[in-house]
Amino acid sequence: MKRFVFRNRWLPYALVAPQVAVTLAFFFWPAFDSLRLSLYRASPFGDRLIWAGLANFERLFRDPAYLRSALTSLVFSFVVTFAGLALALLLASLANAKIRGLAVYRSLLLWPYGIAPAIAGIIWLFIFHPSYGILPWLLSFVTAYQFNWFLKGWVAMTLIVMAAIWKQFGYNLAFYLAGLQAIEASVLEAASVDGAGPIRRFFAVTFPLLSPVTFFLFTLNMTFSFFDTFGLIHSVTQGGPGDATSILVYRAWKDGFEGLQLGFSAAQSVVLMALVIGLTAFQFRFAEKKVTY
């Protein structure tokens, strides 16, 4: 690669300045403001700002519901990410086969990505709704069990997980499909010649070659399920029943914007921020080593 050197000393800084300005204004400033606010008790109308030290954090970690919520979030994110990626990879492999009408399948499979999380939630709500949903109705022929997610936490969780996977599915598929197509046919042919069957070929050749894509999608899906599923949960379960689907980001929003406990909510965002920074760092530190580019 040829190394490019700027002659003008200031030009490179000027060129990156807009990007830096945007990052400072829309990321660092709010982040530091949250950090500051998390150390105060703040009134909604801004007339009172009382130093609280670490009281907000203390309240958080004393609350068993918060720790439960952290666990819920982790389980939720891992299930959505792993199940979502596995499914996308499976269908991408199938969609990569040479069959008639391939272009149509591919475009159809991409559709869900174009749908906002809240809308996706409503669609799944219609399918799952205890009284007018089609799925409980169909299941009522098989079993007398009531799939009422207004009361049963695991049903609500399953519903949210399915909706999140479905919503993110098109995106994952697109990347996997592109990844699959980038794999040289000759590599796979060579494996065939060596006597590897389709399953062996997949695990010995295709999957390792896809590792950069998997790594990228893993990071992205984790962040998606941690943050972007807010709309989904808000439109379907509102965190219930009990607190079964109350993931961290939903709690932070609820305490801040419905409960108007700004300092407490800010403390939760700080914890979230730390968690995500940690998770991302961990991924780049350890997972990336296993990735072959």
């Binding site: 207004f150 009361l151 049963k152 936490g153 219930g240 029943p241 009990g242 607190d243």
Partner: peptide
């Protein structure tokens, strides 16, 4: 309401 749900579901 969170606790009402826990009560109604028998938890």
């Amino acid at each position: 309401e969170e606790q009402m749900e826990n009560i109604f579901s028998g938890k």
